[in-house]
């Protein structure tokens, strides 16, 4: 299946001269949830804005559902719903009016039942006639989602949908996102919360300084993350790893005073008990033990530091 969104060689230089995107290539598969992770100012919002038609790319191409986002902008944009990072809503407008407006500007004929249904799904059913300024921050964010969904898009961009949202509501939103995925909607979300990416994404893309550093299957990343290291400091230095411990694939430090063992925390047997027992049999004296986990956060921070 061809990717539903394809970005190639995308560059964006703002009028100020600042280059916010430096040649981004990204392919998004239909029906997946992809999380864009990156620190402040990485270029996440700029990337989304370029795909959605809010920012004009300096160079590069974008296709959405096979349609060029510039030449064939109508066909491309009809497929997209966007929840912006900022809460941009008219304070005096009624909730259902702003949602109707969104549906209309995307060229769909009025469908009151559908609009009320979307509002109900987002637990805004009783707020349909309320004015936007009477809502809490979390409710406003859900109004933005309702607006983005009002025209039945196939692709939904969520730019930090859970910033400033409490834990309870965040979980509710994840639920909404999962349901959308079940209905075949492709979802691209940006977030600063690694747990959020872990909880709902199928794939994770890390972006920094206007460049994509990594795009990987989340489970793949989690497997890497599931690996742990056990460092065993020895009382006396040794010249090489004893023959009897060969099966553990240990690495010996340069000074010969510590051994490192890698294992998978999710395996049935980690092998630690056997290793320690065998070490004792071999007569090695232990000075200290340390375990270390490489988390997604660490992978992320490491990547970002490398390119800083």
């Amino acid at each position: 299946m061809p990717p539903i969104v394809k970005v190639s060689g995308l560059r964006k230089q703002y009028d100020s001269g600042f280059e916010a995107l430096k040649g981004v290539d990204l392919e998004i598969e239909e029906g997946e949830i992809i999380a864009l992770l990156g620190p402040n100012g990485a270029g996440k919002t700029t990337l989304i804005s370029a795909i959605c038609g809010i920012a004009v790319p300096t160079s590069g191409t974008i296709t959405v559902g096979g349609h060029d986002a510039i030449r064939d902008y109508r066909a491309a944009r009809e497929l997209i719903g966007l929840v912006p990072q900022e809460i941009n809503l008219e304070p005096f407008e009624r909730v259902q009016n702003t949602v109707r407006f969104s549906r209309g500007v995307f060229g769909k004929s009025p469908n009151e039942a559908y609009i009320q249904d979307i509002l109900a799904q987002l637990s805004l059913g009783d707020k349909a006639r309320a004015r936007v300024r009477e809502l809490s921050g979390g409710m406003k964010r859900r109004v933005l989602i309702a607006k983005a969904l009002s025209h039945e898009p196939r692709i939904l961009f969520l730019d930090e949908p859970t910033a400033g949202v409490d834990v309870e509501l965040r979980k509710d939103m994840w639920e909404v996102v999962r349901k959308l995925k079940e209905n075949g909607v492709t979802i691209i979300l940006t977030t600063h919360y690694i747990e959020e990416a872990e909880a709902i994404a199928d794939r994770i893309a890390v972006i920094n300084n206007g460049e994509i550093l990594l795009v990987q299957d989340k489970d793949e990343l989690m497997r890497q993350m599931g690996r742990k290291q056990l460092r065993i400091d020895l009382a006396e230095s040794i010249g090489q790893v004893p023959e009897s411990l060969a099966e553990f694939a240990l690495t010996l430090s340069d000074d010969g005073r510590s051994l490192t063992y890698e294992y998978d925390t999710r395996a049935d047997r980690t092998g630690i008990t056997t290793l320690l027992a065998k070490m004792q049999d071999t007569g090695l004296k232990l000075a200290d033990l340390q375990t270390k986990q490489s988390s997604l956060e660490e992978i992320f921070v490491g990547l970002v530091k490398e390119t800083a």
Binding site: C52, G53, I54, Y73, R74, A75, A76, R77, E78, I80, L82, P84, E86, N88, L89, E90, P91, F101, S102, V105, F106, G107, K147
Partner: peptide, 17 residues
């Protein structure tokens, strides 16, 4: 001007119009 000022213009810019 008002949509530009409060930011709702994003919707008009991203719509198929």
């Amino acid at each position: 001007y008002f949509p530009k000022f409060i930011g709702t213009v994003y919707e008009i810019l991203s719509a198929p119009i």
